[in-house]
Amino acid sequence: MIEARRATGEDAAELVRLRGLMLASMAGTEPPPGPWRDTAREALRERLGDPDGSMTAFVVDAPDAPGTLAACAAGTIERRLGGPANPSGRVGYVFNVCTDPRHRRRGYSRACLTALLDWYHDRGVRTVDLRTSASAQPLYRSLGFQLTRDPAMRLALPADPVD
Rank of each mutant, 00 (worst) to 15 (best):
T127K: 13
T127I: 14
W119R: 06
Y108L: 15
L81W: 08
P33Y: 06
R102D: 12
L48F: 07
R141S: 10
P84R: 14
G28D: 02
S25D: 11
W36Q: 03
F145S: 04
D11R: 00
R5N: 12
E78Q: 06
T8N: 01
L139A: 05
P66S: 05
F145R: 04
D163C: 01
T56H: 01
T56G: 07
S54D: 08
A43Y: 15
A85M: 06
F95R: 05
D122A: 15
F95A: 07
I77R: 02
A85W: 05
R80K: 09
A111W: 09
V16C: 08
R47W: 00
T132G: 03
L15Y: 13
R110W: 03
R110V: 00
T127A: 07
R141I: 05
R110P: 00
G53P: 07
A43M: 10
D52S: 15
A152T: 12
G83N: 11
D160V: 15
G9T: 07
Y120P: 09
A134W: 06
A24K: 15
T56I: 11
T56K: 02
P101Y: 01
P138T: 03
A74S: 15
S135N: 04
R90M: 11
R141M: 03
A73I: 04
L157G: 00
L23T: 09
P101V: 05
C72P: 01
A159D: 08
P161S: 15
L147C: 00
M153V: 11
L21P: 02
G34K: 03
R6F: 10
D38Q: 10
V94Y: 09
L81P: 02
R102A: 15
P101K: 06
R110T: 08
Y120S: 14
A7S: 15
D11S: 06
V60G: 08
M26D: 04
